[in-house]
Write a protein that binds this DNA or RNA. Structure first.
Lengths: 210, 210
DNA sequence: ACGGGTGCATAACAAACGTTTGGTAGGTAC
DNA sequence: GTACCTACCAAACGTTTGTTATGCACCCGT
């Protein structure tokens, strides 16, 4: 039996957290084994002991990133329908410094991910799942008459995710222009507009035909 | 007088295009002087002859990226108001392979940009200008009653840009799920929903109440 | 036609990179 | 106590990075 089996996973988590800290300050372009090792006052030998190569380290870093996004202290749970959708989107936005750091890493990861088909597929899968989760809330909201039932559920979910993602990017580059209150206000305006379209005061001229 | 004055700028453009091609396939993480040199069948000596260092090369690469976005064959011009806003957003979306490549590079650039305050500031400025351009169309649409006058012009412009940016990211990672027609449909649904909110089911049209 | 400066390749450079190796400390099993 | 396995360090490996130095070929004004 290995002497310290439980320590193994804990150590891996230590490494991942050091990776996290490096990514926050230097991005993926500055992610090197030496930087990570220095960040945790260790040697590169330690890293290679727990990860076969840099790619594996990077992969688990992205997993940690995804997990942190899921395990992050959720704002609420009991809400349903449109309120639940709002909550889910609020959880994504960089409203706090911690969330801003996490989002910063997310955005940075898109460079490596887009350059590597395998990583791109994993990222795509994550966003697909996120969209499915949102779809659940959208569907509930549609049943409750809080969102227009005429629109496709998946389309509304995609629009919601897109709106949140875009707002994240804008906020990261111009934090002064997009303080937390404004991000929330923009989201609420958007949700309200869509909810007001729910009963539908009749939309004959809507005409999606370009 | 230099023997080939016109050639100089032309050569710089050649280099920039090679940079472009490298970025499309390998992203900013794979942008090296040797890769660029090989891409244009030249040596690294040529690169250093036209650019003092890699940072300068990267900087002009980002400028080329911005310029290409501006010089790209615009869809139309005569449109005004909501139609102009729609056109401007359509110009951003990755509806064609070329636009997808350009957007891919945009997204990739966020990693280097976020890690470098100077580049981040330049990026932020570009997005701010883009938002201002959109604001012009939004304001016109509001005057025409095509968008709710109750909402702040800047907020609507920010929401529009956010929506487009987020849709770009989603489309890049899941091109199969977001073909051009769906991107357009999502955008039109979004615009239509907002336009239907313009007269306001409870608000008198164009009433300027505080 | 001929010197001078430009345009660029060739080649070297130190630094930093990911990875590999040899070895030590300390715990567990027998 | 002996054998062994895990955890880890220190150092070195060969490669790739950005940058610099040297030298040749061409075009130009004179």
């Amino acid at each position: 039996m290995p002497p310290a089996r439980g320590d193994h996973d804990a150590r891996r988590r230590d490494v991942s957290e050091a990776v996290w800290r490096v990514l926050v300050t230097r991005g993926f372009g500055g992610l090197t084994l030496r930087a990570v090792a220095a960040e945790m006052d260790a040697s590169t030998g330690l890293l290679t002991h727990y990860f076969p190569n840099k790619r594996a380290l990077l992969r688990t870093a992205l997993e940690i990133l995804a997990q942190r996004s899921e395990d992050r202290p959720r704002r609420t749970a009991p809400a349903e329908g449109l309120a639940a959708l709002r909550t889910a989107l609020l959880d994504v936005l960089p409203l706090t410094p911690e969330s801003a750091a996490a989002n910063r890493i997310w955005v940075s990861s898109w460079d490596v991910a887009l350059a590597d088909p395998e990583l791109a597929a994993e990222h795509a899968e994550r966003y697909r799942r996120s969209r499915e989760r949102l779809s659940g809330h959208v569907a509930a909201a549609q049943r409750r008459g809080e969102l227009p039932a005429t629109a496709a559920t998946a389309d509304l979910a995609a629009a919601a995710q897109g709106f949140a993602l875009g707002l994240v990017v804008q906020s990261l580059f111009a934090p002064a222009e997009f303080p937390a209150e404004r991000q929330i206000a923009l989201l609420d305006d958007w949700l309200t507009t869509w909810r007001n379209a729910a009963p539908g005061p009749a939309d004959p001229p809507a005409a999606g035909s370009g």
